[in-house]
Design a protein around this nucleic acid. Structure first.
Lengths: 145, 145
DNA sequence: TCTTAAATTGTAATGTTTATAAATAGTCTA
DNA sequence: TAGACTATTTATAAACATTACAATTTAAGA
């Protein structure tokens, strides 16, 4: 795991005056380690062993805190529940419409889109998000069988 | 209103073997006319006068049908409920993070992104979505007061 | 160690969306 | 046009994710 990322995250929490609780430590650690994009429930279930008494509300509360501090991004796809992604470098996501697999896709940020949007709409643009949808190689292979 | 769009939509429903009911007609008409991006509940409330007995389930059912036929797009932003958009030309959305206003932003489709994603990930890409976030002029003006 | 405000917990409540079964109504055929 | 078949609507209940709340616990600074 990336101890550096975790420490940096903890520091930035301290700087914002957010207390470091064992639960927060564990949730952050899980978000950094898991190469997936877990839902709140995924996190809750994954930490059940370590924190048998942890409440679902704690997971949600802290995910909100982390989001407000800018440590994580909330991804809302079509499905019922949000997914959470630890913020590292700028990247987009490619999503398999068949099995739901999410693959990181590094691509230079589309700054020119934001600039044009500023001109056309008069908005003060802060950021954008993009997702790319398709079928992953595994699913394509299975289909061909 | 665009009678043409409505008729084309009704035709493409007929072609797929979907029955034209008064409720479907009204929901489609509302989606085409409303320049906003309504939620299922918005639609339900808007048609209450015309169809006092219409069920919420009918709205949801038909929005799913329309989506499957490709007439509308379902947009899942951060908020609690999905929004629905009648598909016309390719455009993206600029969203005000303060008041929630959604403005259409016409921009040539980012085909090269899809191509690169194909190469890098091996996915069979079908489409992508992008949203741009910021603060609308009205909200900026109010803040400055 | 003590104090205090913040965080956690457990539970109830909210709100959106789906499932289900009975009633209704389009559309096709004769 | 009438009748039959099946899709659709309705009403309601259920599922599900997320939030609100009050009581308890705890992190962190003095």
């Amino acid at each position: 795991m990336s101890q550096t990322q975790l420490n940096e995250a903890l520091d930035s929490l301290k700087d914002t005056g957010v207390r470091i609780t064992p639960q927060r430590h564990a949730i952050l650690e899980y978000l950094i380690d898991s190469m997936s994009h877990p839902t709140a429930d995924d996190i809750y279930k994954a930490l059940e062993g370590k924190f048998p008494n942890m409440s679902v509300a704690t997971v949600y509360n802290n995910l909100r805190v982390f989001r407000e501090v800018g440590l994580i991004k909330e991804l809302t796809y079509g499905d019922s529940s949000s997914r959470f992604d630890f913020v590292t470098t700028n990247h987009y996501h490619v999503i398999c419409q068949n099995c739901g697999k999410i693959v990181d896709f590094h691509y230079p940020g589309l700054d020119e889109v934001e600039h044009l949007a500023t001109h056309v709409t008069g908005f003060k643009i802060s950021h954008h998000r993009m997702e790319i949808y398709g079928e992953c190689p595994d699913c394509s292979a299975k289909e061909a069988h």
